[in-house]
């Protein structure tokens, strides 16, 4: 796979990081689609690694996620491009929103648009979950993946377990319960 140019890298982080509503998880969901499913810049394994490590990294998860993905794609310079590209424009917007907050609250149109963007984020996150699982649901591996994913959901929703604990248990169960999936690459960036 040819190296991704810094221009492409900056542009995609600029677009996804600053267009997506609803906090960090919808952003990581949008990156799943753009980088794994559509462009194939990132394997599903690297995505999962970045997603999980972002949870154990101090600070805002999605920014650590962007740093890891930028690093996978183009090393340290990639990370130094990706993180500011994903945050500076929406940070500037937050300053404007802080200054205009009271006025905006009264605007029905703005509230309508934001509400719909949040509803779209719901669909986007469900789509990302499905897109992550679908390629793994192959004969011989279907039960394992389904049990792990549904088990995680039950722990989170039914038992209010912490996300960190659930990801940790997922790693443990995945390691102990066979590895039937095909060979993948998950090396350092070239």
């Amino acid at each position: 796979m040819p190296a991704v140019s810094f221009r492409e890298l900056g542009w995609i982080f600029l677009r996804i990081g600053n267009l997506t509503y609803g906090g960090g998880d919808p952003i990581m969901a949008a990156f799943q689609r753009e980088l794994v499913a559509r462009r194939r810049w990132l394997t599903a394994e690297r995505y999962a690694l970045a997603f999980a490590l972002a949870r154990v990294t101090p600070g805002t998860n999605v920014l650590a996620f962007c740093a890891a993905v930028g690093w996978f794609l183009r090393g340290w310079p990639g990370a130094l491009v990706a993180v500011p590209a994903a945050t500076v424009p929406s940070g500037a917007l937050v300053i404007a929103l802080t200054a205009l907050y009271e006025e905006l609250q009264a605007m029905r149109l703005a509230a309508g648009a934001i509400g719909s963007l949040l509803a779209a984020a719901v669909g986007m996150m469900l789509a990302a979950a499905w897109n992550l699982l679908r390629p793994r649901l192959v004969a011989g591996n279907r039960l394992r993946i389904a049990v792990l994913a549904v088990g995680a959901l039950v722990l989170l929703v039914g038992f209010s377990s912490s996300p960190l604990l659930v990801l940790g248990l997922g790693a443990l169960a995945g390691a102990l319960w066979g590895v039937p999936s095909p060979e993948r690459e998950l090396r350092e960036p070239a």
Partner: peptide, 27 residues
């Protein structure tokens, strides 16, 4: 590799779980 695949499945569960409060607020 097995652990990462387990994390991936758990991450999918996590995405679905964090959809729920967002859905209650917006749908």
């Amino acid at each position: 590799r097995g652990a990462i695949e387990g994390v991936m499945a758990a991450a999918a569960g996590l995405l679905v779980a964090s959809t729920l409060p967002l859905a209650r607020a917006s749908v």
